[in-house]
Computed example of a mutant assay.
Amino acid sequence: MPDFTAHRHPVLAVRCPDCGRAPGIWCRRPSGHMATDFHQSRKMEADRVFIDQYGPDASVERDGEGWIIDPRGRVGIRPQPEQMALF
């Protein structure tokens, strides 16, 4: 099970489908140079795996130098239907 808090960025918790880099290893360009950003497919895979693991409401948030998982995510700050005014 991927650990989204173990790396310097949560996306590094999954293997990259494009360049095949293992979890924890930054993406590489076809030339072999380090990419300046993660491949889009890796970001999407990280999102998919995170949601499968923690649910659609959870979030991963910065905690000083590391990361924490908040199971409620941003649900607490989203307007709830009873709070929304009808105009």
Rank of each mutant, 00 (worst) to 15 (best):
P2S: 08
F4D: 14
A6T: 07
A6R: 11
H9I: 03
P10V: 10
V11R: 02
L12V: 09
A13K: 06
V14R: 02
V14P: 01
R15W: 04
R15L: 09
R15D: 08
C19G: 11
G20H: 11
G20K: 08
A22T: 09
A22W: 08
G24T: 07
I25C: 07
I25A: 12
R28M: 10
R28T: 13
R29L: 15
R29Q: 15
R29C: 06
S31H: 14
S31A: 14
G32R: 14
G32V: 12
H33P: 00
M34F: 09
M34I: 12
T36F: 11
T36A: 12
D37E: 15
F38C: 03
F38N: 01
F38V: 04
H39S: 04
R42G: 04
K43G: 13
M44Y: 10
M44C: 10
E45W: 05
E45T: 12
E45C: 02
A46R: 01
A46I: 11
D47Q: 15
D47A: 13
R48T: 12
V49C: 06
F50Q: 01
I51C: 09
I51W: 02
D52Y: 08
Y54N: 09
Y54K: 09
G55I: 06
P56R: 07
D57A: 12
A58K: 05
V60E: 04
V60F: 05
E61K: 13
R62T: 14
D63E: 14
G64E: 12
G64W: 15
G64K: 13
G64Q: 13
G64L: 12
E65I: 09
E65G: 07
G66K: 15
G66A: 08
W67A: 05
W67S: 06
W67R: 03
W67Q: 03
I68H: 03
I68T: 08
I68E: 05
I69R: 06
I69D: 07
P71V: 02
P71S: 06
P71L: 04
P71H: 09
R72L: 10
R72M: 10
R74I: 02
R74S: 06
G76V: 04
I77G: 00
I77F: 10
R78S: 03
R78Q: 06
P81A: 01
P81N: 01
E82H: 08
Q83K: 04
Q83I: 01
A85I: 02
A85H: 01
L86K: 00
L86D: 00
F87N: 00
